[in-house]
Computed example of a mutant assay.
Amino acid sequence: MRQKSTESAAPPIAKAGSIPTQGNDIELLQARAQASPGDANNWATLGDALFAKGRFDEAIVALEKGSVAAPDRADIWSALGEARVMASPRDPMPSAALTAFRKALTIDPKDPRSRYFTAVARDLRGEHQGAIDDWLALLKDTPPGATWENDLRRTITQVAKINKIDVTEKLAALAPTSNHPAMPSGLIGGAAIPGPSAEQIRAAAALTPSQQDSMAQQMVSQLEGKLRANPGNLDGWVMLMRSRKTLGEEAKASRALADAIAANPAAAARLQSEAAALGIAKL
């Protein structure tokens, strides 16, 4: 889920899928960038195309060159940070990625992607309340009608639930107030994934803690059965990763990521991005 916008006049990096990503097309983008090494747009477009193909190490090289060509482009620094996250085999938030996100924020303090991932970093460090506060601030700046607002709310709710932090009133009182750049749908882990139904929530509230745990495990098992029957359900895989994370089953969450990629290699970039946003390490 990747953010490609900035408040500067410089054009944003194109969203994945909006530019050609076939091998020959990438070669053309590489040739164009190499022919005009001072043109940050060319490096940014190449980096995005490589990211979309899951070629994260190469995307890093392109985006680093873009950051040299235009060191004041927050969107390029932010994209570089995410590419460094995706290229890391185990660490969900490498220090080099965090450095890039922080650099982006010095240029544009409202950069949504960098704000989101720096909050992820706080959560990974155990600063759960701080991370939630940062996400709430980001939610406050969410553009009216942004398609990812509900997904950000769900992220806040899930992290709060895991860490027993009450955010009910703050979420209920919070409404978008500013027309800041929006993140595309891929940035928030679990985007467009339905949560439990109202009936399931009411039923769970009437159970003892041990019964609630049993119910959760049953629902996860049912989800795994559905994924065995339909392994192409990407939203289902992200829901499984999120569920394992919520249950504190880190190894199983990583296994779910590996299984999801094995079943859907063409969607590896999206799955890894979703996992990184949830703080799930690769096997």
Score class of each variant (00 low, 15 high):
residue 240 L to Q: 01
residue 21 T to D: 03
residue 182 A to Y: 04
residue 261 I to A: 03
residue 145 G to W: 05
residue 79 A to S: 15
residue 118 T to M: 05
residue 186 G to W: 02
residue 237 W to M: 06
residue 116 Y to D: 01
residue 229 A to G: 12
residue 44 A to E: 02
residue 189 G to H: 03
residue 177 T to I: 14
residue 178 S to A: 14
residue 16 A to F: 04
residue 253 A to N: 08
residue 185 S to V: 14
residue 163 N to W: 10
residue 224 E to L: 09
residue 165 I to T: 07
residue 218 Q to G: 14
residue 186 G to A: 08
residue 3 Q to M: 05
residue 4 K to Y: 08
residue 132 I to T: 04
residue 223 L to Y: 10
residue 144 P to R: 12
residue 170 K to F: 05
residue 138 L to N: 05
residue 171 L to T: 06
residue 108 D to A: 11
residue 227 L to S: 03
residue 157 T to P: 07
residue 221 S to W: 04
residue 147 T to D: 15
residue 191 A to R: 02
residue 46 L to C: 03
residue 182 A to T: 06
residue 262 A to E: 01
residue 253 A to L: 07
residue 162 I to D: 15
residue 119 A to C: 05
residue 33 A to V: 07
residue 264 N to M: 08
residue 38 G to L: 13
residue 222 Q to F: 02
residue 126 G to M: 11
residue 274 E to C: 09
residue 259 D to M: 09
residue 207 L to W: 02
residue 118 T to F: 03
residue 219 M to W: 02
residue 57 D to I: 14
residue 146 A to R: 04
residue 222 Q to A: 12
residue 96 A to H: 01
residue 129 Q to D: 12
residue 39 D to P: 03
residue 64 E to M: 01
residue 8 S to P: 06
residue 228 R to T: 13
residue 208 T to Q: 11
residue 206 A to V: 10
residue 107 I to P: 02
residue 111 D to L: 08
residue 30 Q to R: 08
residue 106 T to C: 13
residue 79 A to G: 12
residue 139 L to M: 15
